[in-house]
Every structure is written in C-alpha cells, then in structure tokens.
C-alpha cells in the first residue's frame, strides 16, 4: 500500500474568494417534492458550514433526507428555499448549464454503483470530465494517466469496467473525481457495493486524500465508514440531528503505512 498519493489542493485559480469564506455555507435549506396531491418535505431547513480540508460524513437512515442533501451539495438539484453558498457563490439561483459547469469544476462524485461508462476504457472514463471542461487532448491524456497512476491503476488504463474488479472500478471513479481537481469530493456510500477488505482499501485512499488537503464529504449509513471522518453530521427527518467533531487522536491511522 505504499502508493504515493498525489492529491493536489484545489486549483489556485479558484481562490478568488477570500480564504475566510466557508467552502460550504448552507442556510435554512429546504427541499420539497410534489408527488401527486402530496407534498413531501425531504429537507426542512438545514444549516451547515463546512470548511476547506474537512473530512465529513453525513449519516442518516433511509428517508432521512441525506440523499437530498447530497444532491443539493453536489449541485445536482436546487433548493425549494434557503441558500447554499459554494465558495461564497449562491448556487440556488443558477440554471442548468451553470450548475453543470459548477459540477464539472467544483465537485468530484464517487457513487455507490461506480457509475462508469460501460463501453469506455478506464482512461476514457477518467478523461470525460476534462472533455466537458474543454481541456486539450494532450493535457487531458496526461492528467487522466496521472490520476489513474495515483489510484494505483497504471496497468489497467485500457481495460473496460467489466474487465475490472469492484475495487478497481471504484478507483477509476475516484480518479475521475480527482482529475478536475475539484473543491469537494462527494462520495455516496462509496463502499456499499464492495466487500469489507476492498472497502477498507478505498477508505484508506480517502484518508490519504484527506491528509493531502482535499475536502471530502461521505454520505453513508455505516457507522465504521462514518468514523473515518473527523466530523459526523447526522440527519433525521429532514433536519440536522447532531453534528460532532471526532477527536483527532481517534483517527485510525493503522491502515496507512
């Protein structure tokens, strides 16, 4: 496990906002869905502040609203009311295309089901966000290769997802999330589809990314996954139930060599 992890801090171009502005500043965030004649209140007014470099876990049972919160933080969805400032910019007012741009530059998604393009090679999957960012071919290739090397897949670049193991697929997804050097790595049950050994390897990778300064938010319902984070935010019935900072000493450091 002696991989050298290259985990860059967010792109300096993006430090337009002064460092004292929180990375994520959420104020009375609510999200309602209208389903037929019924209105479902998925989030009822969440306040949350997350700073750069934090490693936070969002926990909650199914139906608690944690997925809705993740969709909002990931700019996949817009709130019904309340504000969400990402790097000081109000995301709630943005249209579809602006949100796509923000997702491309600021968010790196890691999904439970990996969500790789089945017919494309690992390399192409990792290149994809850079294609949409308009990065030139050569630079794209270099950065994708670099990202795959950093998750330990330099010998699997030409393989398609169905030729890779679950752990390898999730590494490809992590490389895809890292390649744009986003502000946030947003992981939704990243170990949910993996056996526990592979799951631990992925979590160790997150630990390393965190120590290199990346901001990581993991959405999970597994306590031992959440305990890897330094902060656990519990959601229940659309509200923040508790928000606790773990003590630094409790960080399990043994997985790192």
């Amino acid at each position: 496990m002696g991989r050298k992890l290259h985990a860059e801090a967010p792109d300096p171009r993006r430090n337009l906002t002064s460092p004292d502005v929180s990375l994520i500043l959420i104020d009375k965030l609510a999200r309602r869905y209208v389903m037929g004649s019924e209105t479902v209140h998925a989030l009822r007014g969440v306040d949350l502040r997350i700073e750069r470099g934090e490693y936070a876990a969002i926990m909650g049972p199914s139906g608690s609203g944690k997925s809705t919160l993740m969709n909002l933080i990931g700019c996949l969805d817009t709130p019904s009311s309340g504000t969400y400032r990402l790097n000081g910019i109000d995301v709630g007012e943005m249209d579809d295309n602006e949100l796509a741009d923000i997702r491309n530059r600021e968010i790196g998604f890691v999904f439970q089901t990996f969500n790789l393009l089945a017919r494309s090679t690992a390399l192409h999957n990792v290149e994809l966000p850079l294609i949409y960012a308009g990065v030139s071919f050569d630079e794209r290739r270099d950065r994708a290769v670099e990202a795959l090397e950093h998750v330990g897949l330099s010998d699997r670049m030409r393989h398609k997802p169905n030729e890779l193991s679950g752990g390898q697929r999730q590494r490809v997804a992590i490389a895809r999330a890292l390649v744009t050097r986003p502000s946030i790595i947003l992981a939704d049950e990243p170990t949910g589809n993996l056996d526990s050994k592979t799951g631990h390897e992925i979590l160790a990778l997150f630990d390393e990314l965190s120590t290199k300064g990346n901001t990581i938010i993991v959405v999970t319902h597994e306590e031992d996954v959440a305990r890897r984070a330094r902060r656990i935010i519990r959601i229940l019935d659309g509200l923040v139930e508790s928000d606790e900072q773990a003590k630094v000493q409790e960080q399990p450091a043994m997985t790192r060599v």
């Binding site: 579809d96 966000p129 949409y132």
Partner: peptide, 16 residues
C-alpha cells in the same frame, strides 16, 4: 438514461 445522468453529473451541459 443512466449514462445521461452520469455525463450530466460530471459536467456535461445540455448542449453537449
């Protein structure tokens, strides 16, 4: 549909 969702999540605009 899912592929479209993936592409949108990682930053594909409507135009793309």
């Amino acid at each position: 549909t899912r592929e479209i969702g993936i592409r949108k999540a990682i930053g594909a605009k409507r135009r793309a």
